[in-house]
Protein backbone atom coordinates (compact mmCIF):
# COMPACT_ATOMS: atom_id res chain seq x y z
CA UNK A 1 0.00 0.00 0.00
CA UNK A 2 1.32 3.37 -0.89
CA UNK A 3 -0.02 6.65 0.15
CA UNK A 4 1.23 9.83 -1.45
CA UNK A 5 0.11 11.84 1.55
CA UNK A 6 2.09 9.76 4.03
CA UNK A 7 3.75 12.01 6.58
CA UNK A 8 7.45 12.07 7.17
CA UNK A 9 8.70 11.76 10.71
CA UNK A 10 8.68 15.13 12.49
CA UNK A 11 11.89 15.29 14.46
CA UNK A 12 10.42 17.76 16.92
CA UNK A 13 7.97 15.16 18.21
CA UNK A 14 10.49 12.56 19.48
CA UNK A 15 9.07 12.27 23.00
CA UNK A 16 5.53 11.95 21.71
CA UNK A 17 6.54 9.28 19.19
CA UNK A 18 8.42 7.28 21.78
CA UNK A 19 5.30 7.39 23.93
CA UNK A 20 3.26 6.07 21.00
CA UNK A 21 5.70 3.25 20.55
CA UNK A 22 5.39 2.49 24.23
CA UNK A 23 1.60 2.46 23.99
CA UNK A 24 1.74 0.11 21.02
CA UNK A 25 4.18 -2.12 22.87
CA UNK A 26 1.93 -2.08 25.93
CA UNK A 27 -1.05 -3.21 23.88
CA UNK A 28 1.02 -5.96 22.23
CA UNK A 29 2.45 -7.34 25.48
CA UNK A 30 -0.81 -6.89 27.33
CA UNK A 31 -2.70 -8.86 24.71
CA UNK A 32 -0.07 -11.60 24.70
CA UNK A 33 -0.37 -11.84 28.47
CA UNK A 34 -4.15 -11.89 28.22
CA UNK A 35 -3.92 -14.74 25.72
CA UNK A 36 -1.79 -16.72 28.16
CA UNK A 37 -4.10 -15.97 31.08
CA UNK A 38 -7.04 -17.06 28.95
CA UNK A 39 -5.29 -20.32 28.11
CA UNK A 40 -4.95 -21.21 31.78
CA UNK A 41 -8.53 -20.25 32.59
CA UNK A 42 -8.05 -16.95 34.36
CA UNK A 43 -10.12 -15.21 31.71
CA UNK A 44 -13.43 -16.56 30.50
CA UNK A 45 -15.97 -15.98 27.78
CA UNK A 46 -15.09 -14.39 24.47
CA UNK A 47 -11.74 -12.68 24.28
CA UNK A 48 -10.82 -10.82 21.08
CA UNK A 49 -7.20 -9.70 20.90
CA UNK A 50 -5.94 -6.58 19.17
CA UNK A 51 -2.49 -7.84 18.15
CA UNK A 52 -1.53 -6.34 14.78
CA UNK A 53 -3.95 -3.42 14.87
CA UNK A 54 -2.18 -1.34 17.53
CA UNK A 55 -1.33 1.55 15.22
CA UNK A 56 -5.00 2.36 14.67
CA UNK A 57 -5.88 2.85 18.33
CA UNK A 58 -2.66 4.66 19.19
CA UNK A 59 -2.49 6.89 16.11
CA UNK A 60 -6.15 7.91 16.28
CA UNK A 61 -6.29 8.42 20.02
CA UNK A 62 -3.32 10.76 19.85
CA UNK A 63 -5.52 13.18 17.92
CA UNK A 64 -8.13 13.34 20.70
CA UNK A 65 -8.29 15.52 23.79
CA UNK A 66 -9.83 15.27 27.21
CA UNK A 67 -13.59 15.21 27.11
CA UNK A 68 -13.71 13.41 23.78
CA UNK A 69 -15.29 9.99 23.94
CA UNK A 70 -14.81 6.74 22.09
CA UNK A 71 -17.22 3.85 21.57
CA UNK A 72 -15.69 0.62 20.40
CA UNK A 73 -16.53 -2.86 19.31
CA UNK A 74 -15.76 -5.91 21.41
CA UNK A 75 -12.06 -5.85 20.35
CA UNK A 76 -11.31 -2.91 22.60
CA UNK A 77 -8.67 -3.77 25.21
CA UNK A 78 -6.14 -1.67 23.31
CA UNK A 79 -8.46 1.32 22.98
CA UNK A 80 -9.10 1.26 26.73
CA UNK A 81 -5.36 1.22 27.41
CA UNK A 82 -4.57 4.14 25.10
CA UNK A 83 -7.45 6.16 26.56
CA UNK A 84 -5.56 5.88 29.83
CA UNK A 85 -7.48 3.16 31.58
CA UNK A 86 -4.78 1.42 33.62
CA UNK A 87 -3.47 -1.97 32.59
CA UNK A 88 -4.44 -3.09 36.10
CA UNK A 89 -8.08 -2.09 35.62
CA UNK A 90 -8.32 -3.65 32.16
CA UNK A 91 -6.65 -6.89 33.22
CA UNK A 92 -8.74 -7.06 36.40
CA UNK A 93 -11.85 -6.64 34.26
CA UNK A 94 -10.73 -9.54 32.08
CA UNK A 95 -10.28 -11.55 35.26
CA UNK A 96 -13.81 -10.56 36.33
CA UNK A 97 -12.59 -8.82 39.47
CA UNK A 98 -14.27 -6.07 41.46
CA UNK A 99 -11.31 -3.80 40.71
CA UNK A 100 -11.90 -4.08 36.97
CA UNK A 101 -12.81 -0.94 35.04
CA UNK A 102 -16.41 -2.23 34.80
CA UNK A 103 -16.36 -3.71 38.31
CA UNK A 104 -16.13 -7.22 36.91
CA UNK A 105 -19.59 -7.00 35.36
CA UNK A 106 -18.56 -6.14 31.83
CA UNK A 107 -15.71 -8.40 30.84
CA UNK A 108 -13.57 -8.42 27.71
CA UNK A 109 -16.31 -6.97 25.50
CA UNK A 110 -17.51 -4.24 27.85
CA UNK A 111 -14.68 -2.01 29.09
CA UNK A 112 -15.91 1.30 30.47
CA UNK A 113 -14.27 4.25 32.20
CA UNK A 114 -16.24 7.45 31.94
CA UNK A 115 -13.41 9.46 33.49
CA UNK A 116 -11.26 8.56 30.49
CA UNK A 117 -13.94 8.97 27.84
CA UNK A 118 -13.91 5.21 27.33
CA UNK A 119 -17.59 4.58 26.69
CA UNK A 120 -17.47 0.96 26.08
CA UNK A 121 -16.84 -2.04 24.20
CA UNK A 122 -20.14 -3.06 22.67
CA UNK A 123 -20.95 -6.61 21.75
CA UNK A 124 -23.44 -6.30 18.92
CA UNK A 125 -21.77 -5.59 15.59
CA UNK A 126 -22.42 -1.95 14.57
CA UNK A 127 -24.39 -1.19 17.75
CA UNK A 128 -21.83 1.36 18.90
CA UNK A 129 -22.07 3.42 15.71
CA UNK A 130 -25.46 5.05 16.54
CA UNK A 131 -24.28 5.39 20.16
CA UNK A 132 -21.25 7.46 19.18
CA UNK A 133 -23.47 9.47 16.86
CA UNK A 134 -25.69 10.14 19.84
CA UNK A 135 -22.73 11.28 21.92
CA UNK A 136 -21.85 13.66 19.08
CA UNK A 137 -25.46 14.88 19.07
CA UNK A 138 -25.14 15.49 22.79
CA UNK A 139 -21.89 17.46 22.36
CA UNK A 140 -23.48 19.62 19.72
CA UNK A 141 -26.65 19.99 21.78
CA UNK A 142 -24.65 21.09 24.79
CA UNK A 143 -22.43 23.30 22.62
CA UNK A 144 -19.18 21.70 23.71
CA UNK A 145 -16.26 21.26 21.32
CA UNK A 146 -15.86 17.60 22.06
CA UNK A 147 -15.75 14.86 19.49
CA UNK A 148 -17.13 11.35 19.57
CA UNK A 149 -15.37 8.46 17.88
CA UNK A 150 -16.77 5.16 16.85
CA UNK A 151 -14.45 2.26 16.10
CA UNK A 152 -15.82 -0.73 14.24
CA UNK A 153 -14.71 -3.50 11.94
CA UNK A 154 -15.24 -3.60 8.21
CA UNK A 155 -18.04 -6.14 8.59
CA UNK A 156 -20.14 -3.55 10.45
CA UNK A 157 -20.52 -1.37 7.38
CA UNK A 158 -22.99 -3.82 5.88
CA UNK A 159 -25.24 -3.38 8.91
CA UNK A 160 -28.22 -1.04 8.87
CA UNK A 161 -27.12 0.70 12.03
CA UNK A 162 -23.99 1.96 10.20
CA UNK A 163 -26.02 3.54 7.43
CA UNK A 164 -28.71 4.95 9.69
CA UNK A 165 -26.09 6.58 11.90
CA UNK A 166 -23.95 7.96 9.07
CA UNK A 167 -27.00 9.45 7.43
CA UNK A 168 -27.99 11.32 10.57
CA UNK A 169 -24.42 12.38 11.34
CA UNK A 170 -24.07 13.88 7.86
CA UNK A 171 -27.59 15.31 7.87
CA UNK A 172 -27.15 17.08 11.17
CA UNK A 173 -23.42 17.85 10.99
CA UNK A 174 -22.47 15.98 14.10
CA UNK A 175 -18.92 16.03 15.49
CA UNK A 176 -18.17 12.37 15.07
CA UNK A 177 -15.42 10.32 13.46
CA UNK A 178 -16.24 6.86 12.21
CA UNK A 179 -13.14 4.69 12.10
CA UNK A 180 -13.53 1.46 10.26
CA UNK A 181 -10.69 -0.84 11.25
CA UNK A 182 -10.61 -2.89 8.09
CA UNK A 183 -8.70 -6.02 9.10
CA UNK A 184 -10.14 -7.83 6.07
CA UNK A 185 -12.07 -10.50 7.92
CA UNK A 186 -15.41 -10.38 9.66
CA UNK A 187 -14.70 -13.32 11.91
CA UNK A 188 -13.82 -15.82 9.16
CA UNK A 189 -15.52 -14.19 6.20
CA UNK A 190 -13.23 -12.25 3.92
CA UNK A 191 -14.15 -8.72 2.83
CA UNK A 192 -14.44 -9.87 -0.77
CA UNK A 193 -16.93 -12.55 0.21
CA UNK A 194 -19.28 -10.22 2.08
CA UNK A 195 -19.00 -6.74 0.61
CA UNK A 196 -20.37 -5.74 -2.78
CA UNK A 197 -18.08 -2.71 -2.68
CA UNK A 198 -14.60 -3.45 -1.43
CA UNK A 199 -13.49 0.09 -0.79
CA UNK A 200 -15.09 0.79 2.55
CA UNK A 201 -14.44 4.51 2.41
CA UNK A 202 -16.66 4.73 -0.67
CA UNK A 203 -19.65 3.98 1.52
CA UNK A 204 -19.45 7.62 2.61
CA UNK A 205 -20.53 8.72 -0.87
CA UNK A 206 -24.12 7.80 -0.09
CA UNK A 207 -24.12 10.44 2.63
CA UNK A 208 -21.91 13.02 0.97
CA UNK A 209 -19.56 12.52 3.88
CA UNK A 210 -15.86 13.23 4.12
CA UNK A 211 -13.80 10.09 4.00
CA UNK A 212 -10.21 9.02 3.81
CA UNK A 213 -8.11 5.90 3.78
CA UNK A 214 -5.44 5.51 6.44
CA UNK A 215 -2.65 2.95 6.54
CA UNK A 216 -3.73 1.21 9.67
CA UNK A 217 -0.35 -0.46 10.01
CA UNK A 218 1.35 2.94 10.16
CA UNK A 219 0.73 4.93 13.30
CA UNK A 220 1.97 8.12 11.69
CA UNK A 221 -0.46 7.83 8.84
CA UNK A 222 -3.35 6.90 11.07
CA UNK A 223 -2.60 9.92 13.22
CA UNK A 224 -2.32 12.22 10.22
CA UNK A 225 -5.70 11.18 8.81
CA UNK A 226 -7.37 11.18 12.20
CA UNK A 227 -6.02 14.61 13.10
CA UNK A 228 -7.68 16.12 10.06
CA UNK A 229 -10.96 14.33 10.76
CA UNK A 230 -11.01 15.40 14.40
CA UNK A 231 -10.29 18.98 13.48
CA UNK A 232 -13.17 18.95 10.95
CA UNK A 233 -15.48 17.55 13.55
CA UNK A 234 -14.38 19.83 16.36
CA UNK A 235 -14.33 23.08 14.43
CA UNK A 236 -17.05 22.59 11.87
CA UNK A 237 -19.16 19.71 13.05
CA UNK A 238 -18.30 17.72 9.96
CA UNK A 239 -18.22 13.95 10.36
CA UNK A 240 -15.70 11.72 8.60
CA UNK A 241 -15.50 8.07 7.69
CA UNK A 242 -11.94 6.77 7.98
CA UNK A 243 -11.04 3.42 6.54
CA UNK A 244 -7.94 2.27 8.40
CA UNK A 245 -6.53 -0.70 6.55
CA UNK A 246 -5.01 -3.03 9.04
CA UNK A 247 -4.65 -6.71 9.87
CA UNK A 248 -5.07 -8.89 12.89
CA UNK A 249 -2.26 -11.32 13.60
CA UNK A 250 -4.32 -13.49 15.95
CA UNK A 251 -7.51 -15.42 15.39
CA UNK A 252 -10.90 -13.73 15.61
CA UNK A 253 -11.13 -14.77 19.24
CA UNK A 254 -9.30 -17.08 21.58
CA UNK A 255 -11.31 -19.98 20.26
CA UNK A 256 -10.16 -19.31 16.69
CA UNK A 257 -6.78 -20.49 15.35
CA UNK A 258 -4.49 -17.84 13.94
CA UNK A 259 -5.24 -18.60 10.32
CA UNK A 260 -7.89 -21.32 10.29
CA UNK A 261 -9.65 -22.25 7.07
CA UNK A 262 -10.27 -18.74 5.91
CA UNK A 263 -6.76 -17.47 5.44
CA UNK A 264 -3.38 -19.09 4.85
CA UNK A 265 -0.43 -19.20 7.15
CA UNK A 266 1.57 -17.56 4.36
CA UNK A 267 -0.84 -14.65 4.26
CA UNK A 268 -0.53 -14.07 7.99
CA UNK A 269 3.24 -14.33 7.85
CA UNK A 270 3.50 -11.92 4.97
CA UNK A 271 1.29 -9.42 6.79
CA UNK A 272 3.58 -9.65 9.78
CA UNK A 273 6.21 -7.98 7.64
CA UNK A 274 4.00 -4.90 8.07
CA UNK A 275 4.07 -5.26 11.87
CA UNK A 276 3.24 -1.72 13.02
CA UNK A 277 5.59 -1.91 16.01
CA UNK A 278 8.60 -2.82 13.88
CA UNK A 279 7.68 -0.40 11.12
CA UNK A 280 7.36 2.49 13.55
CA UNK A 281 10.51 1.60 15.49
CA UNK A 282 12.48 1.52 12.27
CA UNK A 283 11.01 4.85 11.14
CA UNK A 284 12.09 6.41 14.46
CA UNK A 285 15.53 4.81 14.36
CA UNK A 286 16.03 6.01 10.79
CA UNK A 287 15.16 9.51 11.92
CA UNK A 288 17.53 9.27 14.86
CA UNK A 289 14.70 9.51 17.38
CA UNK A 290 15.08 6.03 18.89
CA UNK A 291 17.95 3.83 20.04
CA UNK A 292 18.10 0.12 20.79
CA UNK A 293 18.55 1.13 24.40
CA UNK A 294 15.27 3.09 24.22
CA UNK A 295 13.54 0.01 22.87
CA UNK A 296 14.98 -2.11 25.69
CA UNK A 297 13.76 0.40 28.23
CA UNK A 298 10.32 0.50 26.70
CA UNK A 299 10.10 -3.27 26.67
CA UNK A 300 11.31 -3.50 30.28
CA UNK A 301 8.90 -0.86 31.47
CA UNK A 302 5.99 -2.45 29.62
CA UNK A 303 6.91 -5.92 30.89
CA UNK A 304 6.84 -4.58 34.42
CA UNK A 305 3.50 -2.87 33.87
CA UNK A 306 1.93 -6.02 32.42
CA UNK A 307 3.36 -8.25 35.17
CA UNK A 308 2.03 -5.82 37.74
CA UNK A 309 -1.37 -5.84 36.04
CA UNK A 310 -1.47 -9.65 36.13
CA UNK A 311 -0.52 -9.74 39.79
CA UNK A 312 -3.07 -7.09 40.60
CA UNK A 313 -5.79 -8.91 38.69
CA UNK A 314 -4.98 -12.22 40.32
CA UNK A 315 -4.88 -10.78 43.82
CA UNK A 316 -7.97 -8.61 43.52
CA UNK A 317 -11.22 -9.68 45.10
CA UNK A 318 -14.08 -10.98 43.07
CA UNK A 319 -17.22 -8.83 43.21
CA UNK A 320 -19.24 -9.15 46.39
CA UNK A 321 -22.23 -11.44 46.00
CA UNK A 322 -24.46 -8.43 46.52
CA UNK A 323 -23.07 -6.91 43.31
CA UNK A 324 -25.27 -9.30 41.37
CA UNK A 325 -28.27 -7.11 42.05
CA UNK A 326 -26.75 -3.64 42.04
CA UNK A 327 -26.54 -1.34 39.00
CA UNK A 328 -29.66 -2.75 37.37
CA UNK A 329 -31.54 0.49 37.99
CA UNK A 330 -30.20 3.94 38.77
CA UNK A 331 -31.63 5.88 41.69
Amino acid sequence: MTNPNKNVVDSARGDEYRDWLKQMTLIRRFEEAAGEAYAIGHIGGFCHLYVGQEAVAVGSNAALKEGDVIMCSYREHGHALVRGVSARAVMAELFGKATGCSAGKGGSMHMFDTTKGMLGGHGIVAGQIPLATGAAFSFKYNKTDNVAVSYFGEAAVNNGAFHEALNMAALWNLPVVFICENNRYGMGTALERSHAVWNIHERSCSYDMESEIADGMDVLDTNRVMSKAVERARKDGIPTLIEARTYRFMGHSMSDPIHGHYRTKEEVESQKERDPLITFANQLKDAGLLTDEDIKQIEASVAEEVADALTFAEESDIPDASALFTDVYAD
Partner: peptide, 28 residues
Protein backbone atom coordinates in the same frame (compact mmCIF):
# COMPACT_ATOMS: atom_id res chain seq x y z
CA UNK B 1 -35.42 22.66 16.02
CA UNK B 2 -32.44 21.83 18.21
CA UNK B 3 -34.76 20.38 20.85
CA UNK B 4 -37.61 19.07 18.73
CA UNK B 5 -35.95 16.97 16.08
CA UNK B 6 -37.50 15.26 13.10
CA UNK B 7 -35.67 12.08 12.20
CA UNK B 8 -35.37 9.96 9.11
CA UNK B 9 -37.42 6.75 9.29
CA UNK B 10 -34.64 4.86 10.99
CA UNK B 11 -35.87 3.54 14.31
CA UNK B 12 -32.72 1.61 15.11
CA UNK B 13 -30.54 4.58 14.29
CA UNK B 14 -32.35 7.25 16.27
CA UNK B 15 -33.04 4.94 19.19
CA UNK B 16 -29.30 4.20 19.38
CA UNK B 17 -28.51 7.85 18.91
CA UNK B 18 -30.79 8.62 21.82
CA UNK B 19 -28.98 6.12 24.02
CA UNK B 20 -25.61 7.60 23.06
CA UNK B 21 -26.94 11.05 23.88
CA UNK B 22 -28.26 9.83 27.23
CA UNK B 23 -24.78 8.44 27.98
CA UNK B 24 -23.26 11.88 27.53
CA UNK B 25 -25.32 14.37 29.42
CA UNK B 26 -28.77 14.77 27.89
CA UNK B 27 -32.23 13.38 28.68
CA UNK B 28 -33.71 12.30 25.37
Amino acid sequence: EDRVVDTPITELGFAGLGVGAAMTGTRP
